[in-house]
C-alpha cells in the first residue's frame, strides 16, 4: 500500500489534487482512496488531504497514516513541523517552495536527514494556470520523484479527468505538470 499526505491551505486544491491523482491512478487498474480532514475548513486555513493506493480493495478507514510521501503545497507550511507528523524513515517529502534545499534546511531544521525534494509549484501555477492552485504542478513533481507512471501516460490520463474544463485550462495544466516534472530537484 502506498500512502500520501498532502499539506495545503483550503482553496489551494489539495482535495482536488488528491482526487484527480486517485482518478488517474485508478485508470491503471489500482484501487484508490482520497480523503481529507475537514474541520471548519475555511478558505486559507491549513488542512491535510490523503491518498491510499493498493492492488486490492482498500478497506482501511482510519485517518491515522504513516505516509510514504508528504506533498506540501503551501510555502509557509514547509516551515511547520506538522508536516513530519507520524513520519517513518522512508518518508519522502516534496516541498512546494521558492527556496533552495539548503535554505529550506536552514529554516526548517527538523527536515535535516530526511528525503526532501523541492519545486516552486506556486510560481509554476501562477505562470501557467494564472492562479495560485499548485496541485497539478505538484503531481508533475510527484511523478518525477516517485516514477510511478511515465509522464506522458500520466498527462494523457490527467487530460481525461480535466475533460470538463475548457481546452485552454487543460493546456495550462499540462504545461504546469511538465514544468514541475522538469524542475523538481
Amino acid at each position: 500500500m502506498l500512502e500520501i499526505r498532502w499539506h495545503s491551505r483550503a482553496g489551494q486544491g489539495a482535495v482536488t489534487g488528491a482526487k484527480g491523482f486517485a482518478e488517474v491512478v485508478s485508470h491503471t487498474g489500482k484501487e484508490v482512496q482520497a480523503f481529507a480532514f475537514y474541520g471548519s475548513a475555511k478558505r486559507g486555513a491549513a488542512m491535510t488531504a490523503y491518498n491510499r493506493v493498493d492492488d486490492k480493495q482498500i478497506i482501511n478507514n482510519e485517518k491515522y497514516m504513516e505516509p510514504d510521501y508528504v506533498l506540501v503545497l503551501d510555502p509557509a507550511l514547509v516551515m511547520s513541523d506538522s508536516i513530519i507528523l507520524n513520519h517513518k524513515e522512508s518518508t519522502t517529502y516534496i516541498l512546494g517552495t521558492n527556496l533552495t534545499r539548503d535554505e529550506v534546511l536552514e529554516e526548517a531544521p527538523f527536515l535535516k536527514g530526511k528525503r526532501i525534494h523541492t519545486v516552486d509549484c506556486m510560481k509554476i501555477s501562477l505562470n501557467t494556470i494564472g492562479r495560485a492552485i499548485p496541485n497539478t504542478p505538484m503531481l508533475g513533481a510527484f511523478m518525477k520523484v516517485s516514477q510511478m507512471l511515465p509522464i506522458e501516460e500520466f498527462k494523457e490520463d490527467m487530460k481525461l479527468s480535466l475533460k470538463k474544463f475548457p481546452q485552454k485550462i487543460i493546456d495550462a495544466n499540462m504545461d504546469a505538470i511538465s514544468q514541475a516534472y522538469g524542475e523538481v530537484s
Binding site: K19, S26, V32, Q33, A34, F35, Y38, N61
Partner: peptide, 12 residues
C-alpha cells in the same frame, strides 16, 4: 453512510 468517512472519501 458514514459522514465524511464514506460521504467524502473518493474511491473506486
Amino acid at each position: 453512510q458514514d459522514g465524511f468517512i464514506t460521504s467524502h472519501t473518493a474511491e473506486n
